[in-house]
């Protein structure tokens, strides 16, 4: 257990804990608004921003790159929003289109950057897979500070977010300002994604946002409980993933976190009371028993004759 005394590990684990936690919280709203894949889209769309920031400033400092990522991520989110509002193109198609063309732009800029003398290829790998194990204290500090602000935002706007996520039409009718609220939520999602890319990378970011929230949803119908559980699940996945990575030689952190997250979802989907699959199967079997017993006849387990 010497790993726990290792300074690097503590830094990494703390960063993953915070990221996992805040992803769970913000992800809850994204999942409820049926915008789960926004995380996937924004993380891909962030690439051109990252590279452009590097090209323009010549600095490889994390904060600068993240600022670039934020800018392009937000632009993408706004473009998607605009497209969905003004045309018949639906959210998933707009998301796929914007994110992939932005990523294309990113690869173009990347090939520009690679021609510069001090550029390295490692940057892109880190972007795609995350580099949790290379997290510095300064990175973790940034994450903690941002998470703190995001959490503050969630608490302040709790009432509005709650109504807006569950029933946007009702929210609009009740006079909640739809555009600003939507913008704020999107902004918070983008910030979370940009922060999270450092840990798990572009490809896996969507799981960070969705999995803890999806798992938490199985255990409670109340938003407050769901959000807290999502934070716990996310944070735990982060730490466990970091730990698994530390002790399993060569096991990359991002994928480890995602696997843990995935297992939480599987366990929740199966075992949660009421919503869980096993619980529902048992209830169904008991009811069939009651149905056939009351009609005193054979029960054919007819699983349907048509396509569903």
């Amino acid at each position: 257990m010497t790993v726990f005394k290792d300074y690097t590990f503590i830094v990494v684990a703390l960063g993953c804990l915070a990221l996992g936690g805040i992803s769970g919280v913000i992800g809850s709203f994204a999942v409820l608004r049926k915008q789960s894949l926004l995380g996937d889209g924004v993380s891909h769309a962030a690439l051109p921003g990252v590279v452009a920031a590097f090209l323009l400033t010549g600095i490889k400092n994390t904060a600068v790159l993240l600022a670039g990522a934020l800018f392009s991520g937000l632009t993408a989110a706004l473009l998607i929003s605009f497209t969905v509002k003004k045309t018949k193109v639906r959210f998933d198609a707009a998301l796929a289109t914007v994110m992939s063309s932005f990523f294309g732009l990113g690869t173009v800029l990347l090939t520009c950057a690679q021609k510069l003398p001090d550029a390295t290829q490692a940057g892109l790998s880190a972007f795609i897979y995350g580099q949790a194990s290379a997290m510095l204290k300064s990175d973790v500090l940034l994450i903690l500070v941002c998470s703190g602000f995001l959490l503050l935002g969630v608490i302040l706007f709790w009432k509005e977010f709650k109504v807006f996520s569950f029933d946007p039409e009702f929210a609009v009718q009740s006079g909640y300002p739809e555009k600003p609220l939507s913008l704020v939520l999107s902004l918070m999602t983008v910030i979370t994604v940009i922060l999270g890319i450092q840990t798990v990378g572009v490809v896996l970011m969507s799981a960070m946002l969705i999995a803890p929230a999806a798992a938490a949803r199985q255990w409670s119908d109340r938003l407050s409980v769901m959000v807290v559980l999502a934070a716990l699940f996310g944070g735990a996945s982060g730490v466990l993933g970091a730990y698994a990575s530390a002790v399993g030689e060569g096991l990359p952190t991002g994928p480890a976190i995602v696997v843990v997250s995935g297992l939480t979802v599987a366990a929740s989907v199966l075992f949660a009371p009421k919503r869980g699959v096993i619980s529902r199967i048992m209830k169904r079997k008991m009811n069939r028993l009651r149905l056939t017993v009351s009609f005193g006849g054979e029960s054919k387990d007819n699983e349907g004759r048509g396509n569903n």
Partner: peptide
Amino acid sequence: TVSEDAATGIVFPLLF
């Protein structure tokens, strides 16, 4: 238990 888009966003990262 989860919506279709959420399911997509869980399954493929897991497999990846």
